[in-house]
């Protein structure tokens, strides 16, 4: 019963998500929440991971060796992409709310996408090739 309610809630959510007419800012809004939720989960994982510092140097180095393995480096890059979009779009939101950004929010969003892709490509260079 509870499961059925959850399913209908989710299908209704998907229906609204796909049928709602999306303007320029809608995708920024959707991406901002998805990246934000991801980052909230990540900061908790990060807090737990850093408790390794309490176990001394050997345990910490062992953890760091794991975190610098290829799979984790790829994760770091993915995380960098989430952070990059969320912070650039966050600056856009602050400009719209506190400044005169509502007049040119579409241009800022274009800037967010271009600068974001360039910075994430730069991160790939720093992480994988540097």
């Amino acid at each position: 019963m509870a499961n059925q309610t959850a399913t209908s809630f989710f299908s209704r959510w998907l229906e609204v998500l796909f049928n709602y007419r999306k303007h320029t800012g809608s995708w920024a809004w959707i991406l901002h929440r998805i990246t934000g939720l991801g980052l909230t989960i990540y900061i908790m994982v990060h807090i737990i991971a850093l408790t390794g510092l309490l176990k001394g140097e050997a345990a910490f180095n062992e953890e760091m060796a794991l975190f610098t393995s290829p799979v984790f480096l790829f994760g770091e890059w993915l995380l960098g992409a989430l952070v990059m979009f969320h912070s650039l779009n966050g600056v856009r939101i602050a400009l719209v709310d506190f400044g005169n950004g509502a007049r040119y929010h579409k241009q800022i969003l274009a800037f967010v996408y271009v600068l974001g892709v360039l910075m994430v490509a730069g991160m790939a260079y720093l992480i994988f090739l540097h």
């Binding site: 929440r33 934000g36 939720l37 980052l39 909230t40 900061i43 908790m44 807090i47």
Partner: peptide
């Protein structure tokens, strides 16, 4: 701030 910002956003 990170935790508060994340949970308030959630």
């Amino acid at each position: 701030l990170g935790l508060w910002h994340g949970l308030n956003g959630t």
